[in-house]
Design a protein around this nucleic acid. Sequence first.
DNA 1: GGCCTCCGTAAGGCGTAACTTACCGTTTGT
DNA 2: ACAAACGGTAAGTTACGCCTTACGGAGGCC
Lengths: 105, 105
Amino acid sequence: MPTYGAALEALADPTRRAVFERVAERPRPVGELAAGMPVSRPAVSQHLRALKDAGLVRDRAVGTRRIYEVDPDGIAAVRAYLDRFWTDTLQSFAAAAEADQEERP
Amino acid sequence: MPTYGAALEALADPTRRAVFERVAERPRPVGELAAGMPVSRPAVSQHLRALKDAGLVRDRAVGTRRIYEVDPDGIAAVRAYLDRFWTDTLQSFAAAAEADQEERP
DNA sequence: GGCCTCCGTAAGGCGTAACTTACCGTTTGT
DNA sequence: ACAAACGGTAAGTTACGCCTTACGGAGGCC
């Protein structure tokens, strides 16, 4: 059960974000993802693990390769959580502002 | 001009996220924010700086204290950016899935 | 079976983010 | 004007995240 915190941590790192965006373009095996990146293949592999733990990507085995692709369900969950997070935040702020204005007219 | 990357990095740290959530509850001075947190006041102050640089909070001086509050505009910007990020991601995935299905019926 | 490809993991180095204490400027109140 | 409250900043330590190299296991191909 990935928390939204894990997703935020996963997307915080620029390199990992680049990996995720490459996965988002289209499903690809690890070697192909690593090719053309400034870091080594194991580094990419570790980033993919973090993204997977966060529920942002998923993988399936095809022969000797592992195809990584976006996890729509996980993304939808994170998106919903964040969206509610922003909504609640703004709502609290609006309520506090109104209360403050009422307090001293 | 805060990038969305800065916002993600800012919200990645659990302690900083806690600070932000406390600010989101209602506008408060630094001392009150720091009270009841497991870290020192300067630490909170540094987190507030990061949140401010990311455009998530703003502050105003009231006497000798500084009231921190959520920055609605900044949050709206980050929210819009992330929302489009998810949308694009899912759309790319859907397109790739469809292309794949068409490729081998 | 032997070999090669693909990829995950372990171990260690290294930079940096996060925290602490100490200090200083600003503002308020008496 | 002096003292106290409030909070930002500097300096230093420590912990953690990211990267590398080295290795091993699983699967395909001859």
